[in-house]
């Protein structure tokens, strides 16, 4: 048995050789086990017959540039996620439907340096991608409530602000804050306060569109970014938030607790110089809602 073929069949890496017409010439054991396709079955067949999803302009372009220029092509997980639709190892299935892959393609030359075939390597990077995903989530979200964190909101807000100004679209912001939250903490303890923060974030998050953003802005203060929404619409949404929270019952150690929120609403208007100015407007409106008696919506 050939030494190299033993290595090729035992490395933790998918190896494929394709002829210039993209028929499979070699398919190592790693590929057999991940794909469930035996080498004898796929040998000589067009790769696209077994993997029609690979027939994309990007993949064909890479094959052609490898075969024509002797280029190497790199298919990073970040840009392509995967080439071959394989199932991931079970522990990652909840996050990824497919095994995440980092792939390389390069030319195989004859003795006279002409290129007659190309090789592909397939590396399973699912675990790495899962860790990265988790890190990014942690970087974006508030650990307690699951809402986005302030940093993410500010970044997102700047992007949305610039986009909405550029295309003259409406954009609104709702800032809200739990009324007498300190009292809740003082009477029932911080764990109860945490529970209420979580409940409220969950309730509001369930009411907004996927294009909206809810973020925990400060201790008991939240901010909701509503793209493509004008002031009257945002006011209505804020009013729905208010009544939903006022009706919601929180149960902590058998006790029923009710809280209310005060809300400030602001929309993008011509002349508003930055997203900070928009936030400031909403914050001023929130202050006014507090001052004028709480459990209400004030727009400006």
């Amino acid at each position: 048995m050939n030494e190299f073929s033993q290595i090729l069949d035992s490395v933790n890496l998918g190896l494929v050789i394709l002829d210039a017409d993209l028929r499979v010439r070699y398919w190592n054991r790693w590929m057999e086990s991940r794909s469930g396709i035996a080498a004898e079955r796929i040998a000589g067949a067009l790769l696209f017959d077994f993997f029609p999803s690979l027939k994309t302009p990007a993949f064909i372009r890479s094959c052609k540039s490898v075969l024509t220029f002797g280029n190497f092509s790199f298919f990073s997980q970040k840009l392509h996620r995967f080439l071959f639709p394989f199932r991931p190892d079970s522990s990652f299935e909840s996050r990824f439907e497919q095994m995440q892959q980092s792939c390389t393609m390069g030319p195989l030359r004859n003795d006279d340096t002409t290129i007659s075939a190309l090789y592909l390597t397939v590396q399973d990077v699912t675990e790495l991608a899962a860790y990265e995903h988790r890190l990014m989530e942690m970087n974006m979200r508030d650990g307690l409530t699951g809402a986005y964190n302030r940093r993410f909101l500010e970044k997102r807000m700047e992007e949305e602000f610039n986009r909405h100004v550029r295309y003259s679209r409406s954009l609104s912001v709702v800032m809200f804050d739990i009324d007498f939250f300190k009292k809740v903490n003082d009477s029932y303890g911080h764990l109860c306060g945490d529970l209420i923060l979580k409940d409220i974030a969950g309730e509001i998050a369930a009411m907004i569109r996927t294009t909206d953003f809810l973020a925990r802005y400060g201790g008991e203060e939240f901010c909701c970014l509503l793209p493509e929404t004008d002031l009257p619409a945002a006011q209505m949404i804020a009013e729905r938030f208010r009544s939903r929270v006022a009706e919601a019952q929180h149960i902590y150690q058998g006790q029923e607790i009710y809280v209310t929120i005060s809300l400030g609403v602001a929309a993008l208007t011509p002349g508003l110089s930055s997203c900070h100015a928009l936030l400031k407007k909403a914050d001023d409106a929130l202050y006014e809602a507090k001052r004028s008696g709480r459990n209400r919506v004030v727009a400006c």
């Binding site: 372009r61 540039s65 220029f69 002797g70 280029n71 190497f72 092509s73 790199f74 990073s76 840009l79």
Partner: peptide
């Protein structure tokens, strides 16, 4: 990633 891919293609073609 796009810059890298475009770079890869352009550099590969010219140097190749």
């Amino acid at each position: 990633e796009t810059l890298m891919e475009v770079g890869n293609i352009l550099i590969g073609a010219c140097v190749g």
